[in-house]
Design a protein around this nucleic acid. Structure first.
Length: 410
RNA sequence: GUGGGUAUAGCUCAGUUGGUUAGAGCGCCAGAUUGUGGCUCUGGAGGUCGUGGGUUCGAGACCCAUUACCCACCCCA
């Protein structure tokens, strides 16, 4: 038997319904917040991600599905969604519309060659939004509010963590101070952290090693060394969240894993899904458009991991819907087919082609989750009638075929 | 890449210290008088016990290898 590749799953039955419901719900909310749909290619040039996500990240360093296509291009399956949307933004020359705001939402598959575990697949799906041209911290606030609304709508309990990653003014000096501190205690840090001092010192902060965490308690904190502007924004963000009644925790160790983040960073976590607890993450990336050769344009966005919230979603109760049509004789089937075609203009219709007894048809209609079971038997056929039962109300009636056709044609 | 766990029916799992024709529940199919679903009852189909070796008179059980899946580390949504 040919099996799906490791870390790749079919969405079928309940999973498919949940996926569809999630996408519909999130799309609706995104539109209410002024975002519009964008779709970008799943395959992109590798250098897009090297420049945006960053070569020092594991994602680009060792997790990409990368290959050379038949034209000799170095390409890869997208490992995340932001880079493609920013590329599309620059390619459409929207960066030339200074002062304009653009807001997009997207959803679709992402690929990372990792060892699968709970909440982590090689092909997984994200729903994300990207907002361009809005520098105000109110936009950061609005995205967090939006996420809160999303998880509330889906019936998922989450905790909100926020942090500020600083800007070009305050981050570089902080980074230097941090490196100085880390070098002094380097021998006591785990091997990974020792390596990170050179490659990406900020990420030492969210090392999961307990000994490292203890050593880091005395480390300089960016939150205390933010420049005036960043500090003002971060304080304002906290005030807005408090006023809006959104509980949050400031997590100075919250470091987004991708290089393009700056300024506000946030993460929504769930305590009900195992080790991979981050269900959504995002933040500001005011320099990313420049990295991709666009004119400087502020940006902020987030992404939600669909698979991570799938089992948590509270689905609305499913109701019986549409029609089941069945015939008790071969001749009766000939009358059913045109009727099905008519009904399908506006209703869900399932047709059973095999002639069967009434009981079998009722069972079939029940299994098909149809609201109405309509059957033509010998009796009905001779009078040009059709027998209809409402499976929910348990009421039945026999009406002329013509009547049903006319009513449903509207 | 590293570590741990699990592989028996379509699904969830039982299978005692190795011992005859490998079981249950759910699901599926067919019936319970001739045209009435969900509930109940009866019957039925369906398994080379992940794969390959080995130990043994005898292996679903024990040993080795291999593959797949799951969980955790790493990293991230």
């Amino acid at each position: 038997m040919i099996h799906a590749l490791r870390g790749m799953k079919d969405l079928i039955f309940d999973d498919a319904r949940r996926y569809e419901y999630i996408i519909q719900t999130l799309s609706r909310i995104a539109r209410n917040y002024g975002f519009e749909y964008i779709e970008t290619p799943i395959l992109e040039e590798t250098r897009l991600f090297k420049r945006s996500v960053g070569e020092s990240s594991d994602i680009v360093g060792k997790e990409m599905y990368q290959f050379t296509d038949k034209g000799g291009n170095d390409v890869c399956l997208r490992p995340e969604g932001t880079a493609g949307v920013v590329r599309a933004f620059v390619q459409a020359k929207l960066d030339r519309q200074q002062g304009q705001k653009y807001r997009f939402f997207y959803h679709g598959p992402m690929f990372r060659y990792e060892r699968p575990q709970k909440g982590r697949l090689r092909e997984f799906h994200q729903f994300g939004v990207e907002s361009f041209g809005e520098k105000s911290v109110e936009e950061d606030f609005t995205l967090i509010v939006m996420l809160a609304e999303i998880f509330e709508a889906l019936g998922i309990r989450t905790r909100v963590k926020i942090n500020s990653l600083g800007c070009t003014v305050c981050m570089p000096p902080y980074r230097q101070r941090l490196v100085g501190y880390l070098e002094a205690i380097a021998q006591e840090l785990c091997p990974d952290c020792q390596r990170r001092i050179a490659t990406n010192p900020i990420r030492v902060l969210d090392c999961k090693n307990e000994q490292c965490q203890n050593l880091l308690e005395e480390a300089p904190k960016l939150s205390q060394e933010l420049c005036e502007e960043c500090d003002r924004d971060f304080t304002r963000l906290q005030k807005l969240l408090t006023d809006a009644g959104i509980a949050y925790e400031v997590d100075t160790h919250l470091v987004r894993g991708l290089d393009y983040y700056s300024g506000a960073a946030f993460e929504f976590v769930s305590d009900e899904i195992g080790a991979q607890s981050a269900v959504a993450g995002g933040g500001r990336y005011d320099r990313l458009v420049e990295f991709l050769e666009g004119r400087p344009t502020p940006g902020v966005g987030f992404a939600i991991g669909i698979e991570r919230i799938m089992e948590l979603v509270r689905m609305p109760q499913e109701r019986r819907e549409g029609w089941y049509l069945g015939a008790m004789t071969p001749e009766a089937l000939d009358r059913l087919l045109p009727l099905a075609r008519q009904l399908r203009r506006s209703h869900r219709v399932v047709v059973e082609y095999a002639p069967k007894g009434l009981k079998a048809h009722l069972k079939g209609a029940d299994k098909a989750n149809a609201r109405y079971c309509a059957v033509i038997g010998e009796e009905e056929l001779s009078k040009e009638h059709i027998w209809i039962k409402d499976l929910e109300a348990r009421e039945e009636k026999t009406v002329p075929l013509k009547e049903l056709e006319e009513i449903e044609a509207q």
